[in-house]
Write a protein that binds this DNA or RNA. Structure first.
Length: 437
RNA sequence: UCCUCGGUAGCUCAAUGGCAGAGCAUUCGGCUGUUAACCGAAGGGUUGUAGGUUCGAAUCCUACCCGGGGAGCCA
């Protein structure tokens, strides 16, 4: 068997006309008395094989006929261009080696038919094998690669921030307490931002990328308890610099997914034209203007409150690209936002709201660099100064205007894939009532 | 935490107070180009749990368990 080249489905077209060896799992099987069509998947794609009874040893054909879903096998066969096949190629089976035949008495539970979300989530470890989840996983990978490439190519240094943190980065959100360290309460991180600010003063432009934990009793399609976030931070940066960076990042992700993941987008039946229309410049407006637009569209929002999910959808309903909303009331933003020079009641924060109802994918802005103002804010927010001693040092030793943002990976992946729930954008989602598998 | 919807065969669902059903999956048989293949047959049920109303409950009532969607909060 070993003399034939070992190939993967993704690149099988390079072997047209050759006999090759392909290892994978049985995705589905259609058969009649004298011909069978096993569909194999190998983690790089899906391929239909053809087994004709008249051209095979009798036991080989019977073995193929008896294959059960998700049985593992290696097939030797000849690659043939086939215009009717989705990938353009088929494999004419010559022989087969079955590694494990899934028992008929205990068949693979996820059939090609419909299943409910509860059933599928309980079997997430198997659900990942299906075509749709395969496509999402590959797009997520591409999004993350695009993010890393974007920052790496623009002079940013990756500096990872800790997951165990001694205090809240932002006073509002609830934290997961970890009872382990002696004499000290420690929490799981909800943002690497404060550390990013220190790192930016050391390395200029930095980013961190890792998991984030929020102990909010959120129970919606747009929330996870554990999610991944990328957070850049730049020294000598203003709100405008942050906006330019955010726009550039989103554009590079969209371009990359469109460039390299067309096949996956097709599997997901994503309306690609909605992604192709994502071009610079993005829409830009102030919080003031956004509130007026929302009110004119019938929202009951009043100045001084934050947007709800329905407001975000309403605001972007006629837009073909994201919108950057900036200058929010200071009261609804975290303590560290730099106030606007002309109107101190406004914070120099910016959110990027994706179209098609995907909502806020980026939140950030310019940070306070003045020591006295920061001290005042800590007091106003009733935060313990001692916990922020090191953070205050950044304003004592060569402080400069700086800023950055956080982008939610799952929300971005959801948007790229056109998902209607965040839980499919991560392999093992952690939610209020879901911690297994 | 609150609001709301749901739980019936392995899966997806139907049955609205009167014999618990269909499609798919599984098993057996048929079929040489299928694309969630198709055709015929068979097996498969403590209707989430506990209690109540009723001649009679999947169906009505109460409590609990489990899950979906949404609100608030956020990325």
């Amino acid at each position: 068997m070993s003399e034939f080249p070992r190939v993967s489905i993704a690149t099988i077209g390079q072997y047209d006309g050759q006999v090759v060896r392909l290892s994978g799992w049985l995705y589905n099987l259609r058969r009649s008395g004298k011909i069978a069509f096993p569909i194999l998947r190998d983690g790089t794609g899906f391929l239909q094989c053809v087994a004709v009874k008249a051209e095979l040893a009798q036991d080989t054909f019977e073995a193929i006929r008896g294959l059960t879903q998700e049985s593992s096998l290696t097939v030797i066969g000849k690659v043939r261009a086939e215009s009717r096949a989705p990938g353009g190629f088929e494999l004419d089976v010559q022989s087969v080696e079955i590694h494990q035949l899934v028992a008929e008495a205990d068949p693979y539970p996820i059939t090609p038919k419909d299943h409910g979300i509860d059933f599928l989530m309980d079997r997430r470890h198997l659900w990942l094998r299906s075509k749709r989840q395969f496509a999402i996983a590959r797009i997520r990978h591409e999004v993350i690669r695009a993010v890393r490439d974007f920052f790496d190519n623009n002079g940013f240094t990756l500096v990872d921030t800790p997951v165990f943190t001694p205090a809240a980065c932002e006073g509002t959100s609830t934290l997961f307490e970890v009872d382990y360290f002696e004499d000290e309460k420690v929490y799981l991180t909800q943002s690497g931002q404060l550390y990013n600010e220190a790192n930016a003063m050391a390395l200029g432009k930095v980013y961190c990328f890792g998991p984030t934990f929020r102990a909010e009793k959120s129970k919606t399609r747009r929330h996870l308890t554990e999610f991944w976030m990328v957070e850049p931070e730049m020294a000598y940066a203003t709100l405008e610099d942050v906006k330019v960076l955010a726009e550039g990042l989103v554009l590079s992700i969209v371009d990359r997914v469109l460039d390299r993941r067309q096949e996956e987008l097709k599997i997901l039946e994503r309306d690609v034209s909605r992604l192709e229309s994502i071009k610079a410049p993005f829409n830009r407006m102030s919080y003031d203007a956004a509130v007026k637009i929302l009110q004119s569209k019938g929202s009951e929002i009043t100045w001084g409150t934050d947007f709800g999910n329905t407001d975000e959808t309403l605001l972007t309903e006629e837009m073909d690209r994201p919108v950057l909303v900036d200058k929010y009331p200071t009261d609804i933003k975290a303590f560290y936002f730099q106030p606007d020079t002309d109107r101190p009641e406004l914070a120099l924060g910016v959110d990027v709201i994706a179209p098609e109802g995907y909502g806020e994918i980026i939140g950030g802005g310019q940070r306070i660099h003045d020591l006295n103002l920061l001290l005042k804010r800590l007091e106003e927010h009733q935060l313990p100064r001692e916990a922020f001693d090191w953070y205050l040092d950044l304003r004592k030793f060569g402080t400069v205007p700086h800023g950055g943002f956080g982008m939610g990976i799952e929300r971005t992946v959801s948007w790229m894939c056109g998902l209607n729930h965040l839980r499919e954008a991560i392999a093992y989602p952690r939610m209020l009532y879901r911690t297994r598998p």
